[in-house]
Simulated scan of single mutants.
Amino acid sequence: MTVSLGAPSRVVSSHSALLRPTSSRTAPPGGPVLPDPPAPTSRQLGIVAIVLSATAMGAAGLFGRKATPDGAVLGEALTLGRMVVGAAGMLVLIALSRRLGHLRRTRLSWSVVGGGVLLGLSLATYLSATVLTDLSRAVVLHYLGPVVATVLARILLKESIRRLDALSIGTAFTGMLLAAGFVGDNRAGGEHETLGTVLGVASGIFYGAALLCYRYRTDMSSDARCFWNFVFGAVAAGAMVLATRPDMSGMTAGHWIWAGGFFVVCGLFALGLLVVAGKHLRAAELSGLSYLEVVVALLIGMMAFGESVTLLAAAGAGLIIVAMALPMFARR
């Protein structure tokens, strides 16, 4: 494995627009490979990818609840399955497109390895946090990630944070606090509140760092990047499974069917498109649009599980929708 961030080579593919890489700028010796500003067509592809990805990610609660027996805690195990199925699915797609040779020739770098590992850790710690603390608090702490990614992109990649970008992120984060019930909720925390909060913060930091990693190595085709992202995510989730040793003895055939849907929809589809979006959008745009997941989860909870939506939560969802639209009006 070559761990390097040297000047990337251009890769041209005619299979699909999703596989078309963007160009890169080479920083001074020893520095990172800095991505060029996305072209108009590339930017539109990134917007479509993140909207579809966030929608599928928002359905994770539905699949996760249906796949989990009563009283069980299977977050790490479901995350591992999510990554393994994603890696296998990408390998099949690459083989069908006769690009296995390209995959073997693709050099790895720390950003590719780190992106997968960090995402696996983020999803595993987030699911654990939802068990140990209030769901609203876990969601809020997890979505520190886009803010972390935007700040790090400003420091490390020198990406500009326009006033419209800052307004979008701030509006989305405020709306997310309201939609998750974090504002105006005086419920007392559980006995594992401290550990849950720590895991939630870790989830947000891991998620933000993973989003930042997707802005490196834009020379790598999306199919190869997705495959390695799933592989190293599975490694991280597998380590969590070994540490927690979840009990899966209560799973029935119905649970496994829902788990399979979770692996495909929230794994291969959602996380694969997240990598595509990360290649074609600036961190600020990716951050604002990713908050769509909160709105989707809110609607699914209301329609599938009869969860009540307060006036503050509805107002928060409205703010998120407004924030999502703001990056689309940014000057290209």
Results as ranks from 00 to 15, higher is better:
L271Y: 09
A277V: 02
V275F: 10
A297I: 06
A297K: 06
S287V: 01
G272Q: 06
V296K: 13
S290Q: 03
L298V: 14
V296Q: 11
V276G: 03
A313I: 00
V294M: 15
A313C: 02
A313Y: 02
V294E: 11
A277Y: 07
L274I: 07
G301I: 01
I300E: 12
T310D: 10
M302Y: 12
V276R: 06
R282G: 09
V294W: 11
A284T: 15
E307R: 15
L299Q: 09
E285Y: 01
S287G: 13
A277T: 09
L289K: 00
E307A: 13
E293S: 04
S290D: 00
L299W: 05
L312K: 03
V296S: 13
L299Y: 07
L274D: 11
K279T: 11
M302L: 05
L289W: 03
E293A: 04
M303L: 15
L298R: 07
R282P: 09
S287H: 08
L298F: 01
G272I: 01
A284V: 04
E293H: 05
V309M: 13
E307H: 14
A277M: 05
A297E: 09
I300W: 10
L299V: 14
I300Q: 07
M303N: 04
T310A: 07
A277N: 08
V275H: 06
V275L: 05
L299I: 15
M302N: 10
L298Q: 13
A283S: 15
E285F: 02
T310N: 02
R282C: 00
G278C: 08
A304S: 10
S308A: 15
L274T: 11
T310Q: 01
L292Q: 04
L271C: 04
V275D: 05
V295M: 08
